[in-house]
Amino acid sequence: MPYCERMDDHPLRRALPLILLSGLCFSTLDATAKYLVRDHTLLLVVWARYVGQMLIVTPISWHRAGPSFWRTNHLRMQLARSLCLVVATLSFFGALRYVPLAEGSAITFLAPMFAIALSGPILGEKPTRARWIAVVGGFVGILILVRPGSAVFHPATGFLVLAAIANAVYQLLTRRLPNDSQATTLFYSGLMGTLVLTVLLPVTGTTPTAFTVRDGIFLVMLGAFAGLGHWALTSAFLRAPASMIAPFTYMQMVWATLYGFLVFDQLPDALSALGMAVIVASGVLLLLHERRLTGTMSKDASR
């Protein structure tokens, strides 16, 4: 399907609302998780997130690809990728119990930088100088954030870095699935989290004995925002090139900062805001470089 059927129908016009909606959903998901992990076990919160995602994305995948939507040419790769997402979620939600939402979200945006560093051993790629500059810039930002006396100068920050690394591997493995449809990949994204955590909950004894109506509402919200966010994100990338819409994913930082202030009364100080800005700027510059590089390769291929 072409990105644009008419010359006056710019792809961003259709994709931008979806990518902004996905960022709002994921930030709302993170804020809800931070609220829930204060009173509930981490496994329960993460389980609710994945079950909700599967309940929403499975019918969507079926609708897009038909009854064989679950068939894949790379089962091990799909399961490994899905497991990476579980590790990222467990690490991120676990860290949110101790660190502010905005700063925690900023650190996870290091994932593209980690992906560059890991692209050599995983994909056999040789990063360009501009990519390495973006990596260095991202790590400068995290050093500003994780400084003595800051809100994220806490051992839990290590789990945020682990979440970013797991997300980076998740992204790289996604690039190794060229023969699977996006509907199939969307389905497998939440499969391991649903299966593994459904088994672990009764085994570890983390199933709640007392459950309030409010608890149920928030856990349902958790799954709903996860599923809706993944649907919106996938739909956006179906409607416009990744290089065009990826920079708008950083709008998620705005939502995270607002939720941190309005719900948890947490606002980044000046230096933390600077560190967050450095990380976001490094990511945006990296995306612009990738867009320029892709455009240059396309021109060369057409000659």
Rank of each mutant, 00 (worst) to 15 (best):
S282M: 03
F261K: 05
P268W: 02
G283P: 00
F248N: 05
L285M: 12
T294M: 11
F264K: 11
H289M: 10
M244G: 05
P268M: 01
M244R: 12
R291T: 06
G275D: 06
G295T: 02
I279H: 01
F261T: 08
M244Q: 10
S243I: 08
Y259I: 15
M297N: 02
H289P: 10
L271C: 11
Y259G: 12
E290V: 08
L285K: 05
L258K: 04
P247H: 09
T249A: 07
L274F: 01
F248G: 01
T249V: 11
V278N: 07
R291K: 15
L293T: 03
W255G: 01
Q252S: 13
Y250N: 02
A281M: 13
A270M: 09
T296Q: 07
Y259E: 06
G283L: 09
G275W: 00
V254M: 15
E290T: 07
L286P: 00
Y250C: 05
T294Q: 11
A273M: 08
D269P: 02
G283C: 03
E290K: 14
H289K: 07
G283R: 00
M244D: 02
L287H: 08
D265Y: 14
M297K: 01
M251V: 12
L267F: 09
H289S: 13
A240I: 14
L287P: 01
V280Y: 14
M276I: 13
A277C: 11
M297E: 04
D269W: 05
F261M: 14
I279R: 09
Y250K: 13
F264P: 03
G283Q: 03
A273S: 03
L293C: 13
D269V: 05
R239E: 10
P241I: 06
T249I: 12
L288N: 14
A273D: 02
L258M: 12
F264V: 04
A240G: 00
R239M: 15
V278G: 12
V284Y: 02
V263N: 14
M276V: 15
T296V: 00
L285P: 00
L258Y: 15
L287F: 05
A242I: 02
V280S: 10
L285G: 09
Q266R: 15
V284G: 06
L274D: 08
L262A: 09
R239L: 14
V263L: 15
P241W: 04
L258Q: 06
Q252N: 09
T257P: 15
D265L: 14
L258D: 11
